[in-house]
Amino acid sequence: MALNGDINTASKTIVLGLATGFGAIGPGIGVGIIFGKTIEAVGRQPELRGQLQGMMWLGFALTEAIVFYALGMAFVAYAIT
């Protein structure tokens, strides 16, 4: 089992994965908090479900986008170095 290739490409690929992975930690926690809090709020006041869900999806998307900033920057770093 011999792996061959360019050490430069290998390290860039590892860093691409690491950057995306670390970038996903924060948004992961954030998305969890958003869904958890919404469930809590709906549990307390089920009649506000519709309003809360709209806000939840908005917050979810705003938080989730941060992963893609990390991914985008990682791709840029991969492409230009």
């Binding site: 998307a61 989730e64 986008a65 893609f68 900033y69 991914l71 985008g72």
Partner: peptide, 13 residues
């Protein structure tokens, strides 16, 4: 940036 990147990268990724 945020509005365009969110849509673009969500679909690309």
């Amino acid at each position: 940036v945020s509005l365009s990147f969110r849509l673009f990268f969500n679909m690309l990724a």
